[in-house]
Design a binder for these strands. Structure first.
Lengths: 142, 142
DNA sequence: ATTATCACTTGTCTTTCACAAGTGGCTATT
DNA sequence: AATAGCCACTTGTGAAAGACAAGTGATAAT
């Protein structure tokens, strides 16, 4: 859980969003799922920058409780769990993209990935759709 | 400061953004400035939902250090300090608006402010421009 | 000089964080 | 059937950050 009391329950949409995923790691995990296609505990550990195992386990639970991700058994390997974004989670793509645009504009260190930033501005909807398509892949069927 | 080690320095724009304002309070303060026009320490204390004084002081310092806000003396009351958004801070408007849209779509409790959410979708650029105009008000001149 | 406001600062206690190590369930191998 | 190994956590520990209450120094009006 990000904050201490967690829900401020003010009715403010900004506050609600922050109480749901406004911590240091939740959006990093969602980025890994959305942009890198990560789906397993091990993939998150490798991809996410030095996230502690207990923090990862805690965030995955919290994101599932919030309805942003779901857990399911991997049909190809029964001892493996697959985490997937729900539509609610996929809808966070625009938030991540706006954050990326902001960093691209104001952080000199982020300049490297300029072609990606250009695509956000020129083909935003296409990008979001590509994320959605991959996230939905083999959903409900495998 | 939001996180412990703060800067993860991975070059990832999402990580950079989270390291800069990805905590429970920074975006609430920026929301108050951008959407409610708050400019003074006292206004933040009243408006922000129960933010502790030391946390507020800390975040204001951190946001100033990040170049997102500036401090200046109020010309009408010399013992009062005015906090203002810089262009870098104003550029966070789209992030806040996307978060608001997400909450509006997925939080039943946020439904109340539907007309505002409609305006985000129908007149996003106008809304951002209005925020910018107010944030710039009397800047450099008073 | 007194009083009040503002913008913090300090102190205390609670919660969260990161890192390391341990646990139970499942599977493949022998 | 027994063993070994991987996976997905869970637990333990010390450090850091959090909330809340109270105090401080600078300024300004009275």
């Amino acid at each position: 859980m990000p904050g201490p009391n967690k829900l401020r329950n003010t009715g403010c949409p900004v506050t609600f969003a922050l109480d749901t995923f406004g911590d240091r790691w939740s959006l990093v995990i969602i980025r890994d799922m959305l942009m890198k296609g990560c789906r397993t505990y091990g993939e998150f550990l490798e991809s996410s920058e030095r996230i502690a195992t207990n923090v990862l386990a805690d965030r995955l639970q919290a994101l599932e409780a919030s309805g942003i991700i779901t857990k399911s058994q991997d049909p190809e390997n029964r001892r493996r769990v697959l985490y997937r974004l729900t539509p609610k989670g996929i809808d966070l793509a625009p938030v991540l993209l706006e954050m990326a645009l902001w960093s691209g504009k104001h952080d000199p260190n982020t300049a490297a990935q300029k072609d990606f930033l250009d695509r956000i501005e020129n083909d935003r909807d296409g990008l979001v759709e590509a994320f959605r398509a991959r996230a939905m892949e083999r959903d409900q069927t495998g």
